[in-house]
């Protein structure tokens, strides 16, 4: 199960809506081993495409060095699909490189840049196998009480 706080959930949805029809992408880093998405990081889609996303290679290195320095790992790796459902494509499955991460997909096909609900779903992708998991949105995960 993915447990994510409301503010981070909202930030992912807002990013997906803002970048529509281009795919939006980013990560939510968290302390190593915590499984707690804590630090929201928007990434630039270097492909700038409505059907593909890729982090710029320099940005990618910066991100991983920063996480390393902070003893973090990518807890959530998110991106949007802008014309199809929020389910991992064959490309998503083949390129999934973080077996420990929650892969979040948001679909903006319904309302695009406008207000309105989006599909927000989470998956584990390990060795080419996709497992959907429930998403629980909580008020906050960053406080001691909620750890």
């Amino acid at each position: 199960m993915l447990k994510i706080d409301q503010a981070t959930y909202d930030a992912i949805v807002a990013h997906a809506k803002r970048d529509h029809p281009v795919e939006a992408c980013g990560v939510v880093a968290g302390p190593l081993g915590s499984d707690r998405p804590a630090r929201f990081v928007e990434m630039v889609n270097a492909a700038g495409s409505p059907t593909f996303y890729e982090y710029d290679s320099t940005d990618l290195l910066e991100l991983y060095k920063e996480m390393d320095d902070r003893d973090e790992e990518p807890v959530v790796i998110y991106h949007s699909h802008t014309a199809t459902e929020a389910y991992p494509s064959v490309t998503d499955i083949n390129l999934a490189g973080e077996p420990g991460a929650h892969y979040v997909l948001v679909s903006t096909r319904e309302h695009g840049n406008n207000e309105g609900p989006v599909e927000f779903r989470s998956y584990r992708i390990v060795d080419g196998e996709v497992t959907e998991e429930p998403v629980e949105v909580v008020a906050a995960t960053n406080t001691e009480e909620n750890r």
Partner: peptide, 12 residues
């Protein structure tokens, strides 16, 4: 030397 898998994917 650092090796990193690309973070990439998409609907296509």
């Amino acid at each position: 030397v650092v090796i990193l898998p690309a973070v990439a994917g998409g609907a296509r």
